[in-house]
């Protein structure tokens, strides 16, 4: 056990991991709690019965049949946060950006400039891909 304590782990890895566990726990809680209310029938944006009626179609067909429009972007989540099913999607959003937050945190403990650049590049691409998808 004494030797186990002697292993050298990068500081950037440690901060990456610590950040990740904090945001993962928050994300899972934010995803699961509203979903439980949703399954109990509390304030659904799309009632469960409607979901199971149309989920055989593609995502585009599903939204067309259930709501009469197709979904493009994150607006359907942010404009409907009063509903439990869409509220639980906030948790999924947080889980999605948790690696991004962890990468940003790790930049400050990177062992060299090249790792700062690599992590910054990864984080920038991550952010860009999230932004691009909303178009």
């Amino acid at each position: 056990m004494a030797e186990e304590r002697k292993i050298q782990v990068d500081e950037m890895g440690l901060i990456f991991g610590k950040t990740m566990i904090i945001f993962t726990v928050i994300g899972v809680v934010m995803m699961v709690i509203p979903a439980i209310f949703y399954f109990l029938g509390v304030r659904p944006y799309i009632p469960l019965a409607e979901v199971s009626k149309y989920w055989t179609g593609s995502a585009a067909e599903f939204w067309q049949q259930v709501k009469g429009f197709q979904v493009h972007g994150y607006g359907w989540i942010f404009h409907n946060l009063g509903y439990m099913d869409t509220l639980s999607m906030l948790g999924v959003l947080l889980l999605m950006i948790t690696p991004l937050i962890s990468m940003v945190a790790a930049i400050f403990r990177a062992p060299s400039l090249i790792y700062r650049i690599l992590l910054f590049l990864g984080a920038a691409e991550f952010l860009l891909s999230v932004f691009l998808k909303t178009k």
Binding site: F39, I46, Q70, Y74, W76, D85, V92, L100, K133
Partner: peptide
């Protein structure tokens, strides 16, 4: 974890539904 941004692709198309995702996770 680097595949996480692809979740956004599915979210922005409305392809992530709590009734499927929550029981699965």
């Amino acid at each position: 974890t680097a595949n996480a941004p692809a979740i956004g692709i599915y979210l922005t198309k409305g392809a992530i539904l709590p009734s499927v995702v929550i029981p699965a996770v």
